[in-house]
Each structure stands twice: as structure tokens, then as C-alpha cells.
């Protein structure tokens, strides 16, 4: 009796998980690296795709271009890039991140996440939203999480 009820309950839970999702493709091209000069945060893809393209040498002194997911690591609001103060500031609970994505104020527990980025065969940069790289796990060393800033 108890076992049967449990099976029914689990089946019910499984039923609530859809098998097919209708969501936009995760890979997209963002143009040549030269569109992204050093020291800039591009908000060009923010509205459509939810990423910032960052070109900075402020993370461990290396000149890199990478894509940051515009999802606050606290509760998933979209932070605003404040050009004047050179930081991402989340409107929900005031978390702040440096230009390189590392958190420094407010309740966010960890840095913003990088997304996959690579140089496609046609010379354009391509972002892959299906993979993510977390700084605190040491994944920002992964070569799929950035491209060389000298390309720009």
C-alpha cells in the first residue's frame, strides 16, 4: 500500500517534468573580435541573448575577451553595467561585480559565470550558452572560456 502510493507519487512528480522544451538555440555568432576594444563591456547582445562581451586585462593581468552571463549569482536578476562606476550592479539586492565579473559587494556569493566562446572558422566569435565556467571552481582557466584579446 505504502509502496504503491510512493510509486504513484513519484510518477506524478515525473509527469510534471516536460520532455521537450521550446527554447532558442544556444550557439550564436557575435561578429569579429575587433568589434570589442580593450577595456570595454559590450551590451550589444544583452537584450537578445543575455550576455555581456567583455574585453579586459583586469583578471590576472591577461588580455582576454570573454562572455559573461547577465545573471546575478545571487537570485538571477539581470545586473546593470554602470559605465561610470565600472561595475555591474544588481538592482534586486545590490550585489556588485568588477568589470571582470568578480563579486566584491552585496550578497552575491560568487563571481558571474562565463559562457563558452571560441573563434569560429569564418573569423567571427561564437558564444555557446550551453556551457558555463565558474571562477570559484577554477574553471576560468579553461581555454574554452575566453579568447585571446590580442585578436581584437
Amino acid at each position: 500500500m505504502a509502496a504503491t502510493s510512493l510509486i504513484w507519487l513519484l510518477d506524478l512528480a515525473r509527469f510534471m517534468f516536460p520532455n521537450v522544451l521550446v527554447e532558442p538555440p544556444t550557439k550564436f555568432k557575435i561578429g569579429p573580435a575587433s568589434d570589442y576594444p580593450l577595456g570595454g563591456v559590450s551590451t550589444k547582445w544583452l537584450a537578445a541573448r543575455g550576455v555581456w562581451i567583455v574585453h579586459t586585462d583586469q583578471y590576472k593581468g591577461r588580455n582576454l575577451i570573454y562572455a559573461l552571463a547577465s545573471v546575478c549569482t545571487h537570485l538571477g536578476c539581470t545586473p546593470n553595467w554602470l559605465e561610470g562606476e565600472q561595475k555591474y550592479k544588481c538592482p534586486c539586492h545590490g550585489s556588485g561585480f568588477y568589470i571582470n565579473g568578480v563579486n566584491f559587494e552585496g550578497p552575491a556569493p560568487r563571481p558571474l559565470e562565463r559562457l563558452g566562446i571560441k573563434l569560429a572558422s569564418d573569423g567571427q566569435l561564437e558564444v555557446d550558452k550551453s556551457v558555463k565556467f565558474q571562477e570559484e571552481m577554477g574553471q576560468w582557466e579553461d581555454s574554452n572560456s575566453f579568447v585571446d584579446g590580442a585578436l581584437a
Binding site: A13, M16, F17, P18, L21, V22, E23
Partner: peptide, 11 residues
Amino acid sequence: LLLGSRFVGEE
């Protein structure tokens, strides 16, 4: 389970 999707959408 709650959203039926990975973000707040039509589902």
C-alpha cells in the same frame, strides 16, 4: 518542476 522550463516563460 515549478516553472516547467529553464526560465520564466510560456510554460
